[in-house]
Amino acid sequence: MRADAARQVGGGGLVVLALASWLVPGAGHLWLGRRTKGIILLVALTTMFGIGLALHGRLFPFEASQPLVLLAAIADAAMGAPYAIAWAFNLGEGQPAALTYEYANAFLIAAGLLNMLTVLDVYDTVLGRK
């Protein structure tokens, strides 16, 4: 698997692969031929992100003056393309008064962080660490 993965990606392809994996959850695994894993990750992470938006969660702004908000914003943005789409359509404004607001934020933030974990998994797979 190590040699196959390294051959598929090639020299400078690792950065492109990591970027693709970040932009589209599960894309890295699909690229490496791990279809089942890739499809499960794609469905699970985008569903989590969608649930977070549907439950009135907030996509936090990048405010350096508020470190916790900044960290939450980074975690949100780690979701890649779904985050960009939600941001472009003004989704994720958040309703703090909603009963589900905190849970929704947990879904949004966790989805982004898990997507970062998938990027690291792809990276490790290509380098033969897994």
Binding site: K37, I40, L41, A44, L45, T47, M48, I51, L55, L99, T100, Y103, A106, F107, A110, L114, L117, T118, D121
Partner: peptide
């Protein structure tokens, strides 16, 4: 859906699913 317990189950399911697939 406003049940915190159901949301907890849902959240746990998805996180456990991703962890299991990755690890």
């Amino acid at each position: 859906m406003t049940s915190h317990f159901l949301l907890l189950l849902l959240f746990s399911f998805f996180v456990a699913l991703v962890f299991a697939v990755l690890m």
